[in-house]
């Protein structure tokens, strides 16, 4: 065989392997999705959303209303705490500290914070908000989620703002606009789509978190909106139900898994489409 042939075949093998890798990736997504749908569809009923936990030995159909409500509550409070801090921090990094050493340092630190294991954030919040109080509580859960949220929102805001041309800021300043108004009226407004999608993706991420909630908001088997008490969450419920011995609970866990997975995937698809179409 001549050398050219060998080179060609070698090339085809490598390109073939790349193709296989990509196809495996796609296949995995659909395999996981298929299994989650198949396993979850049986437990999917109105009861899931309107009934609270029923003791498994009673053979009575229960639901996860308390867990859905708790998850929404925890995520909403975390967003209320984390989004403003994240956006303001992003504004500092992009507008006040651009190209400065301290700005680059904080930006890198935020980048690193994004990858801190979330369970460690759980142990940290446990030591400052659960132990001193003496019991698990919703605030601790939301704060733990907010701590995860802040660096993501900060970096995504910074990146969105940096896409706005500097000349636009200069043009606003040249009209005699005070700098805070330049940021508020011109820069933020131009970058709104980017910030909105970035922040929403970040919220979607914390909405699927389990590890930071285990040691903070823990779990509860009834509907409750008292943030000073333990609060139920869908993810923690899935964790306990899925590893329980009761078939009805495992089936509920799969149904909840189906709801949360489909919700997150659709949210991601929509947001990424918006992200692709934005002007800045």
């Amino acid at each position: 065989m001549d050398l050219r042939m060998v080179r060609k075949i070698k090339g085809y093998i490598m390109l073939f392997l790349s193709t296989i890798a990509a196809l495996i990736g796609v296949a995995l997504l659909f395999a996981i999705l298929y299994k989650v749908i198949m396993a979850g569809i049986d437990g999917l009923s109105l009861n899931l959303f309107i009934k609270d936990e029923a003791p498994a030995f009673l053979q009575e159909a229960g639901g996860l209303r308390h867990a859905f409500a708790g998850q929404l509550l925890l995520t909403a409070v975390a967003s209320l705490i984390g989004i403003p801090i994240g956006i303001l921090g992003g504004i500092y990094l992009s507008e006040y500290a651009h190209n400065s050493k301290i700005g680059r340092f904080l930006s890198s630190l935020a980048d690193v914070s994004i990858s801190i294991p979330t369970i460690i954030i759980g142990t940290f919040i446990y030591s400052i908000l659960v132990r001193p109080v003496g019991h698990f509580n919703g605030w601790a859960g939301s704060v733990a989620l907010a701590v995860i949220l802040v660096p993501i929102v900060m970096r995504t805001t910074e990146e969105s703002l940096k896409l706005i041309p500097w000349q636009l800021r200069e043009a606003a300043l040249a009209l005699g606009t005070p700098f805070y108004k330049v940021i508020k009226d011109i820069v933020i407004k131009s970058a709104l789509t980017g910030i909105f999608t970035g922040v929403s993706l970040a919220v979607a991420r914390i909405a699927g978190e389990t590890a930071p909630l285990l040691f903070t908001s823990f779990s509860k088997n009834t509907l409750s909106f008292d943030m000073n008490e333990p609060v139920a969450s869908l993810t923690v419920s899935i964790f306990t139900y899925a590893s329980s011995a009761f078939e009805s609970w495992v089936s509920l866990a799969w149904a909840a898994a189906l709801v949360i997975t489909v919700f997150l995937l659709i949210t991601n698809i929509i947001l990424k489409q918006i992200m692709k179409r934005r002007s800045y």
Partner: peptide
């Protein structure tokens, strides 16, 4: 294809655990 692969990252950790 690229969105499908990206979406693998959107699935929560706990779902990977159950699966």
């Amino acid at each position: 294809i690229s969105s499908s692969i990206e979406l693998l990252a959107a699935i929560p950790s706990i779902i990977y655990g159950m699966w």
